[in-house]
């Protein structure tokens, strides 16, 4: 319970560094989700609508990638972005951008795999009708993405959950630098290692509250959308 009290105190005091950490966490997670969506939705839609030899294998690999170990991705991105790595000249290691890259790689397969399933289900339903309407392939994909938007919103939520809860990869590529790359999760890890367990629990409670709030907002959007579009 002391964690809950600490959480209340943190929020009520309006601790500036807490807000900075929350802001960075949201910024990194949401940016990663947006990038993952820009890559994952078109890829998922393409995979849902095309048939080619080896498609099953691609789907299996994609589904498996939903469980990519964050630490491995973190390490791979670290080695890529390190000054001694191939992309070292970008100077991105230990920056929020590096964290966004790692998170986007973790989230993109989730978005693509779940979008593929969602869109394929809808395609089976819509196929005859869209063909009869003479819709071009581009228009078909557009219709499927738009009409599946409420389900795809939930897909984004799953991706966001993964990004917001992740600690291993962001710790490695971000370095948990105070005021610069410290997120909710790395701050919790740090406070735990400092033995300040109530503060760690307090931060944890704040993180959970934020995730719940975002889910609530999305749920509201879904319900509204469903009333409007059926």
């Amino acid at each position: 319970m002391s964690g809950f009290h600490t959480a209340m105190e943190l929020v009520l005091q309006g601790d500036a560094s807490l807000y900075a950490i929350v802001r960075l966490s949201l910024l990194v997670s949401l940016s990663a989700v947006v990038i993952a969506a820009l890559v994952g939705f078109p890829f998922g839609a393409w995979l849902a609508l095309t048939r080619f030899p080896g498609r099953d294998a691609v789907i299996i690999v994609l589904n498996a990638c939903m469980g990519l170990p964050p630490v491995v991705i973190g390490l791979a991105v670290f080695l890529l972005l390190s000054r001694s790595g191939p992309l070292g000249s970008w100077g991105l290691l230990f920056t929020p951008q590096a964290m966004v890259i790692a998170e986007a790689i973790l989230v993109a397969p989730i978005v693509a795999a779940l979008a593929r399933q969602t869109i394929e289900d809808l395609w089976l339903e819509y196929r005859a009708e869209l063909e009869a309407m003479g819709a071009t392939p581009l228009r078909r994909v557009g219709a499927l993405l738009w009409d599946a938007r409420l389900s795809l919103l939930t897909v984004l939520l799953a991706g966001f959950g993964r990004a917001a809860a992740e600690v291993g990869a962001v710790m490695i590529v971000g370095g948990n630098i105070d005021g610069f790359t410290r997120t909710m999760t790395t701050a919790i890890a740090l406070e735990t290692s400092k033995g300040d367990l109530p503060l760690a629990m307090g931060l944890g409670a704040v993180l959970i509250a934020i995730v719940v709030a975002i889910n609530g907002v999305v749920w509201g959007m879904r319900s509204y959308g469903e009333r409007k579009a059926g």
Binding site: L27, L30, S31, V34, L38, T95, P96, Q97, I177
Partner: peptide
Amino acid sequence: IAGLVFATLAPCAYAQDKSIVVASTT
């Protein structure tokens, strides 16, 4: 959306100018 992503990433790139990274101990 593209603008949003850019706006997210861009400021950090400029904030680095007068800063150093110190590798230190726990």
